[in-house]
């Protein structure tokens, strides 16, 4: 068991990291041949940082658009970030003080679950969103819910051997394998997380790295001042007559 889970995690991790890095490389190197910021756009780099910051931290565009999607989406994402942060205590030894102090963040799991349920509800019951949903969109929410629910069960009602879980994971990290503390919830939780890592580079989850590269949001509005030539467009330039 220990080795199956460990092996599965190594594979999932390699595919996750490798796949995402390849995608980031693609987004990084694909040229943006003309200026297309959605205006009004900042006229300085600093302004762009501010714009991107608002987009990433408060989901500004979503807020402008639809308060329901915004509140569910925000609860889910920031609930998840809080929960992830708290997970550091399963990997770090000794547990950093800040992580210990943030112990109440365990309740963020409920924010995450409420957000996910709201999004799933809308996906099924709002006709417009149902129309644009593929099976994968629904399955993805169910997968996240599965992870969230199994995790919450363990935190609040479980009798999982945390010490053993932690040494198992530190074992994986240090190639010094420790026995897997067999517990059905933990098994479900860990398998679902590995599945999530596996599909990440092949799915819409790429929005997480992708948002940083979006030309309509990350470009400075300075087209009149600066030329903005992609390498392939520079070749066309050479054929110009004047």
């Amino acid at each position: 068991m220990t080795f199956i889970i460990a092996g599965f995690y190594y594979i999932a991790f390699i595919i996750f990291v490798g796949g995402v890095l390849l995608k980031i490389k693609q987004y990084w190197t694909t040229p943006a041949p003309i200026k297309i910021p959605t205006t009004p756009a900042p006229t300085t780099r600093l302004g762009v940082l501010y714009r991107m910051g608002k987009e990433i931290i408060v989901f500004e565009s979503l807020f402008k658009s639809n308060k329901w999607i915004w509140i569910f989406g925000w609860l889910f994402h920031f609930g998840m970030f809080a929960v992830l942060f708290r997970h550091l205590r399963y990997f770090l030894d000794p547990v950093p003080v800040i992580v210990v102090m943030m112990q109440p963040l365990k309740y963020a799991a409920f924010a995450m679950l409420i957000g996910l349920s709201g999004l799933l509800f809308r996906r099924i019951f709002v006709a417009r969103i149902r129309y644009i949903s593929d099976p994968s969109d629904i399955l993805m929410l169910i997968l996240m819910l599965g992870i969230g629910i199994s995790g919450t069960m363990m935190t609040f009602f479980g009798n999982v051997d945390i010490v053993a879980t932690k040494s198992f994971f530190i074992g994986i990290l240090t190639f010094n394998f420790q026995p897997f503390p067999t517990h059905p919830m933990l098994l479900i939780h860990l398998i679902l997380v590995a599945v999530l890592m596996l599909i990440f580079p092949f799915s819409k989850l790429l929005h997480a790295p992708g948002i940083f590269f979006s030309p309509t949001r990350n470009q400075v509005d300075n087209a009149r001042e600066k030329r903005h030539i992609a390498p392939w467009a520079a070749k066309l330039d050479k054929t110009r007559s004047v």
Partner: peptide, 12 residues
């Protein structure tokens, strides 16, 4: 390239 990949079908 990016837009083909990253739409999450949020419906916004």
């Amino acid at each position: 390239a990016l837009f083909m990949d990253i739409c999450v079908k949020c419906g916004s």
